[in-house]
Nucleic acid binder design. Structure first.
Lengths: 162, 162
DNA sequence: GGGAAATAGAACCGAACCGGTTCTGTTTCA
DNA sequence: TGAAACAGAACCGGTTCGGTTCTATTTCCC
């Protein structure tokens, strides 16, 4: 199956959490608890998202992370690109990389490009705001203090059956 | 980056080749030569595609592989599912698997489903016929006898930059 | 009828990649 | 000045993937 790396997987969960209170900044440790993603992993992800200008960070004692822009303007495609690099099923379609060697002959060349574009557009069409909006009406019961037990299973669990 | 396994990568190339002459059956070795994919790999892929009813096979001396249906009815989604299993970026959205543990709380749950659907629809919207149709007008110069040199690079080469 | 050609299927292996951790450095605030 | 928090890089073990190899079975043709 096509699979999303856990980095992106967790990243989206974390951002979704932040998007529920767009103004508020939260510390990495708090976000880790809120999403049941390990603190180390959370930190790694948050740093990557800062570099991609999706988050802004405040260092120091009262520091934390907050969305750099309104969640309506952040797309899933941007998040995945920030965490896992360019969205392209095959580099065949990447005009920069010439790994193929038989590009000019490759009968599927244009097809690849088409596929990649379809995927990218699909992911660019979903905003973080939409992701956060789909939370059930019931205000999720105080995730922050949820017993650590639930954390044994990673938040947005794993990947397709192999 | 979201990445497509080489199985699917090569598979699409191979099928594209077959789709250029939908009626004709070709031996695995011939297809391998035509696509510059190793014979072993080609064989593996072809067998999987037969199991998925995308190809039909004829055993024995004059055997070979041919499309089981017109290329217009074969979608990229079907091909990928045949070779790599179900298309789902995360199993979070798979109603069968309950790996998450905190499903009912997961704020991104519906979002995942939305993402997965978008991807699946994008891939289901591209048919093998379309892939094959994009071959440049120039009839590709007799791939069957192309010098083996070109095969040092795999056909539809690799995957996003890491 | 037998052998060659071709597919079917499973098992196997090395290596790259990924998920995850740890450590050190820097910034900020009280 | 020290604790809390972010920044960044290095590191490591395990899983998975790409690819090969081997054996069995089918079919055609001489």
């Amino acid at each position: 199956m096509i699979r999303l790396s856990r980095l992106s997987d967790y990243g989206i969960v974390i951002l979704t959490r932040l998007a529920r209170e767009p103004g508020r900044a939260m510390a990495a440790s708090t976000l880790a608890r809120a999403t049941a993603v390990s603190t180390a992993m959370t930190g790694k992800i948050l740093k990557l998202l800062v570099r991609a200008d999706i988050l802004v960070s405040q260092r120091g004692v009262r520091g934390g992370y907050a969305l750099a822009r309104p969640p309506e303007t952040i797309t899933v495609a941007q998040i995945i690109e920030a965490l896992d690099g360019p969205i392209a099923l095959t580099s065949c379609a990447d005009p920069l990389v010439h790994a193929c060697g038989i590009e000019s002959l490759c009968p599927a060349r244009d097809g690849w490009r088409r596929i990649n574009r379809a995927i990218r557009e699909a992911l660019a069409g979903i905003t973080l705001a939409e992701m956060a909006r789909t939370v059930p009406d019931v205000p999720p019961p105080n995730l922050e203090t949820r017993p650590r037990a639930a954390a044994s299973e990673p938040a947005a669990a794993t990947i397709g059956a192999r």
